[in-house]
């Protein structure tokens, strides 16, 4: 085919009517959270003492960490959809959630006698936690990958991994409302493991789905 013919053909292709990339991320976050929220209400629902738990520091902190992760990862993901952005200026912010978590773990270890560390770390529901966080993350991950496909990520695997962090953050936020294990020791161990799993899944899917 002659390049001139190709150019003529491309200019005949209809003006773009797809969702613009920026908007796609907003749609992905809102819809992903709705799907995760609906799944949460239909399966686990909030814990029975939710209203009184809100007044405890450890319970609230779980949301601070998971929401910080989701929010910072979204900022990076949006930049990763743009081919000309080599290094997102938001990238250092990805350290926010881990740093908060490390500080909380340190505070917890000061607050608790050492013979309680292991029991709190093991908690009551680690298997449930590592299963349900990924389950709640499925919808948000699918939508984040959809949004990234609207873009042109230079690094499909990395972009997929970041999408997984967003999805894991959203999934963990809902799970946290059900979970009775509030110690930062538990969160730092099992939430991290579950979210890492979602991120790896995102990276592997990204490698397949985000090439262009």
């Amino acid at each position: 085919m002659k390049t001139d013919d190709l150019i003529a053909a491309l200019s005949a292709d209809a003006p773009a009517q797809q969702t613009a990339p920026r908007r796609a991320f907003a749609v992905a976050i809102v819809t992903g959270a709705l799907i995760a929220g609906a799944t949460f209400l239909l399966t686990l629902g909030p814990r029975r003492d939710f209203m009184s738990a809100i007044h405890t520091l450890r319970f609230d902190f779980k949301f601070v960490v998971t929401l910080a992760l989701a929010a910072t990862a979204v900022l990076v993901a949006r930049d990763m959809a743009r081919p000309e952005v080599r290094r997102s200026r938001w990238r250092p912010l990805l350290l926010l959630a881990p740093v908060l978590l490390v500080l909380a773990v340190a505070a917890e270890m000061v607050a608790l006698p050492s013979d309680l560390w292991m029991p709190r770390l093991i908690g009551h529901n680690m298997r449930f936690c590592t299963t349900m966080i990924p389950v709640f993350s499925i919808g948000p991950l699918a939508l984040m990958l959809w949004a990234l496909r609207r873009g042109a990520p230079q690094h499909p695997m990395r972009a997929g991994a970041i999408a997984g962090l967003v999805a894991g953050g959203i999934g963990a936020t809902f799970y946290a409302a059900h979970c009775f294990d509030d110690s930062p020791l538990f969160v730092a161990t099992w939430y991290t493991l579950a979210i890492a799993f979602v991120s790896v899944a995102g990276a592997l899917l990204g490698r397949k789905l985000l090439r262009w």
Partner: peptide, 9 residues
Amino acid sequence: LAIHLKRQT
């Protein structure tokens, strides 16, 4: 073709 398909980015 890539410029065309990714022009919205």
